[in-house]
Design a protein around this nucleic acid. Structure first.
Lengths: 346, 346
DNA sequence: ATGAAAGCGCTAACAC
DNA sequence: GTGTTAGCGCTTTCAT
């Protein structure tokens, strides 16, 4: 044990059970694994004994011997520069969803954080045999690193957008459709100058931006680069950028934000500049986290299928591990229309 | 294209590196562990080789040999009856906080879900050597089971309330103070008939209820049992209970809810019954999740030190593992006053 | 400075 | 049916 001398009794092992039961270790092993080869009476007796002593087969040893392992690593990257912690409700929800899916399927989940600039360091979890596969939450700026891992045959699945030249399996919401849908809604509500909030260096955001631009063009409008604001996910910095936007006099009457929290910051910034939501500026969020339904105003937002996400990610990874093909998967999103951007403004 | 045939490529191991480097496994082992006994040149050469082949020491085998393990299990109980998943933002946040603390200290985190009615089944993670210690989120209805584990010397720390006759180490917010603080605030705001929302079978809730009652008595009021509503954490069922409360004609002008989401359900139920918040009914929440600052109205709520929680839980567990004493710890909470229950009503 | 060999706790041939 | 034995991939005496 790494620590724990203290009150710690030496851990019980199979040999102890064997001695107490008056049989050999093999018999105990067989008994505890429910082998038919062992006498019913003996098996029961050994089972009882083990249970009464809270003995449980050492999984480390068992895995080593059996060359198996049921652990999947779930990797939540963090921003090393801002020392940012896991906090965005969306990441946390998706972790919960994956935890449920893995539990249902009988796998263990190792939750791991890695520097977003070195996503490929996550491979160490696989190389060391710590986990048999990886679920990585987000591509961040390192599509290339993920491709590198896939080229090395590291079994991984990534929550994120589907990109050209992609060697790994991604599962994500339909970001292009989401961006287009949200923008289309704002346009239908009569908004013409729509701000896009999000760092397009992140693939998911880039795809949403693409949908946004397409929707504008479809409406005969020319995207205005000044309205595309590369705010970070980090809330405080985002707010500052928003305040600058509101202060600089550039007119806008709609906002499409790449997360609900970002959208709510936009609401506050707009209000701080003396305008109203949705009257003067309609705001659309992204993710549809619980906060969106309770906020003031409730957010029109693009719903991401978080509940499904865990199962899809896990099933794709398990397919990969079986040697099956796991094509990237784009999950449907839908627009939840609420008061921050109603269809018919008052 | 999602590459990845099955587990084809036989995993690299130390013997392979040894062969390629023309040395013995012992030397490779020493080299990779930075032993001074091996020639500098050889060590570097082996290091390079290993790195270039993405070889990483098999941790399962290493742990078995070294009798060590750096894995902590974090257990998030779930309600088996309602098949409820990890969803309350508070649980998710605290998991994030623990993940950060464990990462900082160099431990791995195994995220595990167990049936809340069988918390003691979490011990299996320890008995099987899967983890060297447990962090359990919440006592639920099974203080007794947790005591049982502690009596068995299972190294565990529990997020929850401090109870009499407690054999295990708990870390939690000051629930009595939180309940009293919130109630005192409502009283100071002139509210007299305050509903308490929460299932007092859960120790944390029971302690908050105790604080609530005490605050009432301190104000010369007699707690009215009809105002103590044992709503579940589960949102839909809670809402139904709230609607019934609003319908049954029992007058009340304040609400203390045991989570922010519960508080927001209360807001909606009150509004659905034709009354206003906070004018007719002031509402106080618990936890101070992000939703509380953005909601309509922003919630007055008891702030729990989630950021601290992870570090406190982990440090307590590590102390236990060192054989040190880990006394239960009650963390300070504070009231965040916002519009759902202002001090001075309009 | 390096190698051979024993063994961590377990399972699975292969005996009997 | 049950015991004996040989490893799973690694570290570490103990030799050299």
């Amino acid at each position: 044990m790494s620590g724990g001398r203290g009150a710690e009794a030496k851990r019980l092992q199979m040999a102890d059970i064997a001695r107490l039961a008056g049989v050999s270790v093999s018999t105990v092993s067989r008994a505890l694994n429910g082998s038919k080869l062992v006498n019913d009476e003996t098996r029961d007796r050994i089972g009882q004994l083990a249970r009464s002593l809270n003995y449980s087969i050492n999984l480390g040893a068992q895995n080593l011997r059996l060359q198996k392992n049921q652990t999947i690593a779930v990797v939540v990257p963090y921003d090393a520069q801002s020392r940012q912690h896991i906090s965005d409700p969306f990441f946390l929800s998706i972790v919960g969803s994956i935890a449920d899916a893995l539990t249902d399927r009988g796998y263990d989940m190792l939750l791991s954080r890695v520097d977003a600039e070195h996503l490929d360091s996550a491979a160490q979890l696989f190389d060391s045999g710590r986990a048999i596969g990886l679920v990585i939450i987000g591509q961040w700026r390192h599509h290339d690193q993920l491709n590198g891992l896939a080229a090395r045959k590291v079994p991984l699945v990534v929550w994120g957008g589907q990109l050209p030249q992609q060697l790994y399996c991604s599962v994500g919401g339909d970001n292009v459709a989401g961006g287009a849908m949200a923008t289309g809604h704002l346009l239908a509500a009569g908004r013409q100058r729509i701000v896009f909030l999000g760092d397009a260096q992140l693939p998911e955001v880039a795809l949403r931006l693409q949908g946004y631009r397409q929707a504008l063009r479809d409406a005969g409008l020319q995207p205005d680069p000044r309205l595309e604001l590369p705010v970070p996910f980090e809330i405080v910095a985002a707010r500052e950028a928003l305040d600058r936007l509101c202060a600089n006099g550039l007119p806008f009457d709609g906002v499409l934000a790449c997360s609900d929290l970002l959208a709510l910051q936009a609401v506050q910034a707009v209000r701080a500049s003396g305008r109203q939501v949705p009257r003067d500026v309609a705001v659309v969020g992204y993710d549809d986290m619980p906060v969106a339904t309770y906020s003031d105003p409730p957010l029109t937002t693009v719903h991401q299928p978080v509940g499904l996400a865990g199962a899809e990610l896990v099933d794709a990874l398990l397919a990969l591990l079986r040697g099956d093909l796991a094509p990237p998967r784009t999950l449907p999103v839908r627009l939840m229309v609420r008061d921050s951007a109603p269809l018919h403004s008052a």
